Amino acid sequence: MDKPLKNPPTYMINSVDHALRIATMLQLEGELSVSEVAERLGVARSTAHRLLAMLVYRDFAVQDDRRLYRAGPVLELAAHSPSLASRLREATLPHLHRLVDVLGESVNLAVRTGDTVRFIASVECSQSLRVSSREGMVFPAHRTTAGLLLLAELADEELEAVYPAGRYADRPADRPDLDRLRTELARVRRNGFVLNQGRSERGVVALGVPLRSPDGGALAGLSVSMPSTRYHRHRLPSLVETLSRAAGAIEADLARQA
């Protein structure tokens, strides 16, 4: 259930992966303690402390007089000039927590960059069997719920630009069949949502709706993920309605901020 949707490098360097994840958390979330970092990474406090010490040494983090860590000089530009992704995350997180309370399943927010999507916010449910947090992870757009929602916004020529054949010359299997993808995206546009049954991960069902800007363009994909054993077709209308209401509330908050 917890296996990522993309393949890790052949020679996975866990310490580097942990450090990059900490940097992402500091940039997106703000202050963190050693205990919080250790819990999030699933490592010992001593390991978390060593990783944070290295980030401080390289100016990716700083420690204040309360012994809390925050983004350092290397990351502070983004902290003081919030990106669209960080503003989206801040506006969305309260709604994600409410969605988890209502649906009892894990929920996510993801944005698209080229042919990939990045999960910028994720809240896990409390059930013992659950879909784990995808926050900070990057996956192929055409294999994910949010990715399909956002690709559906593109015109044919824009879709071609996302998947030029030359870019995949040395890895043709990674390029989707564009005719088949266009058919799928047309269905997404008609339905207004994506139902992903095992497409990106075996045993997982995800359902998503777009999150739109005031001008109507899709900013991100809002989704709920659950073990396939807990999904039943009769739940589809209520799930879509609940997600759509949440998306509308987030859009209203973003409009007020703007």
Rank of each mutant, 00 (worst) to 15 (best):
T229K: 11
A19L: 09
V194H: 06
I120N: 04
A247M: 04
M226I: 03
P164W: 07
D215S: 10
A19C: 11
Y168L: 05
L236A: 09
R70M: 11
D177V: 09
S225W: 02
F60W: 13
A23H: 03
L195Y: 06
A249D: 15
A61K: 08
L222R: 01
E105Y: 11
A53M: 04
L178N: 05
A91H: 10
L222I: 11
S122D: 07
K3P: 10
I120T: 06
R70P: 02
A247L: 06
S15P: 00
E184H: 13
Y231V: 11
E153P: 05
L41F: 02
L243F: 12
E90V: 12
L93K: 07
D115A: 14
R180W: 04
L222V: 11
L181P: 06
T113N: 14
A91E: 10
G208M: 07
L55D: 02
A246H: 01
P4E: 08
A220C: 08
E90I: 09
V107E: 01
G147W: 01
G216C: 08
A249W: 09
R230H: 15
R182I: 13
A19T: 09
G72D: 11
V224E: 04
A71Y: 00
L41R: 01
N7S: 15
V240W: 04
R87N: 14
L28M: 14
E184K: 13
V123A: 11
L149P: 02
A258G: 15
P140F: 02
A252T: 15
V138D: 07
R190P: 01
D101W: 00
R58D: 14
Y163V: 03
V117T: 10
V37A: 07
H232Y: 15
F119Q: 00
G136E: 04
V123I: 10
V111W: 03
A146Q: 03
L243H: 10
A161T: 12
A155E: 15
A85S: 14
A53I: 00
A91F: 09
R50V: 04
P4H: 06
A246P: 01
L178C: 12
A258P: 03
R45W: 00
G203Q: 11
T229Y: 12
T229F: 13
G104A: 09
P73N: 09
I22H: 02
L159K: 05
V188D: 09
P4R: 05
A155M: 14
A71R: 05
V194T: 13
Y69A: 10
A61T: 06
I120A: 07
L52C: 05
S15E: 15
V111G: 05
G104P: 05
L236N: 06
